[in-house]
Design a protein around this nucleic acid. Sequence first.
DNA 1: CGTGGATAAACTGTATGCAGTTTTCAGGAA
DNA 2: TTCCTGAAAACTGCATACAGTTTATCCACG
Lengths: 216, 216
Amino acid sequence: MRSGTTVEQMVRAIADLIVTGAMQPGDRLDEISLANRFEVSRTPVREALSQLCAMGLVDRQPNKSAVVTNVTQKHLTSMFEAMAELEGICARLCAERMTLEERKLLEAEHLASARLVHRGAEEEYEAHNTEFHSRLYYGAHSDHITELVTQTRARLAPFRRAQFRIAGRLAQSFAEHDKIVTAILQADGAAAGQAAYAHVSIVREASSVFATVPVK
Amino acid sequence: MRSGTTVEQMVRAIADLIVTGAMQPGDRLDEISLANRFEVSRTPVREALSQLCAMGLVDRQPNKSAVVTNVTQKHLTSMFEAMAELEGICARLCAERMTLEERKLLEAEHLASARLVHRGAEEEYEAHNTEFHSRLYYGAHSDHITELVTQTRARLAPFRRAQFRIAGRLAQSFAEHDKIVTAILQADGAAAGQAAYAHVSIVREASSVFATVPVK
DNA sequence: CGTGGATAAACTGTATGCAGTTTTCAGGAA
DNA sequence: TTCCTGAAAACTGCATACAGTTTATCCACG
């Protein structure tokens, strides 16, 4: 009996169905169909739906089927807005609180990605980008804020794919990161916060093409 | 069969056990005992535990009992920190975005609570206080930020009880609200944000006595 | 042709049972 | 005594079964 991971796998699989658009907002997720599809009983399906509900990907009401959450353009905008604010806070706190070692690692991570920009290595840069932002979240030394920003990032993930495909975005992203790093190394919280806020706001614009068309 | 509410009731009941201290951090919540206690089967108990996990009140690991989350002083501080930042953001956005009607309602709500301060009506003031803050959250017109701040507030609820029992806190709270309202009505986002940030920071200090002693 | 209502099908919420894992505890060796 | 070992007890994860609710269908009626 493969325990523990079964539900987790299903959560990922269903989440993928939703974020790739295979399931549209408003679509019903009935437990029996999903159970057949994944060849398990309804019990773990229900568990997975609970988690997806907590993640905000599906809505549930008593005695009704779970449905794919309809993320409106308005809500999407609001999530990017929150993201910009939260990253701004993290960067500011990083400037104030990061240990010397954390600062060095952040700078190293940042400089390492410079090569990737020249080579136009989108995939690899994406990985470094994720790592860079994670360092910002943890460098703030505030567990709950880290939690909020991580959670928001996860919910935005489906809408920020492919952002680096946009011409010149790689170099621009690096330049923006540079501003953030410089400010943090100078312990200039206000500047770091503003730079991070601006950075995310730009990603928002670059991602706005992925806006969900309101369904029904 | 009373459906839908059964699990919800259990979630509230168990949450109460945790926040009142009847269950200590680290205590195991085994499904069978809870099932007997609430006279239901394990299935709804598991559902309730999932939700409590999503709320951050309990921790779960595969094949192990759920345990009451150990909220350390560090994490508690971090939650208040996040709350101050988030309320600051809300107040700033309120100053920028509230409709004329929302501004009037906020002011009316605030003025109505003035009487309660004189009478020292702690209970009633508490209700008005909650309403006041809710108006700030919704007045920001940013669904996701509203969601984050509401969620954080819920998790802090157990630790901010009785804050108004502290002598003079009622009048001080009102004065702080006054600063926030004045700034919002003047559409001064920066001042509103700072006032709200300071307001929450003070509550944090007033509540620090409720710090959880790390348990094992 | 459209509408309302009753009946049937489909589906959700909960209970129970079994398989596998973790925890506990007793007994023996160092 | 303390530490390991192993078997039993306790518990979790999942499957299945049943009761109750919602949704879909169909037929009568306007």
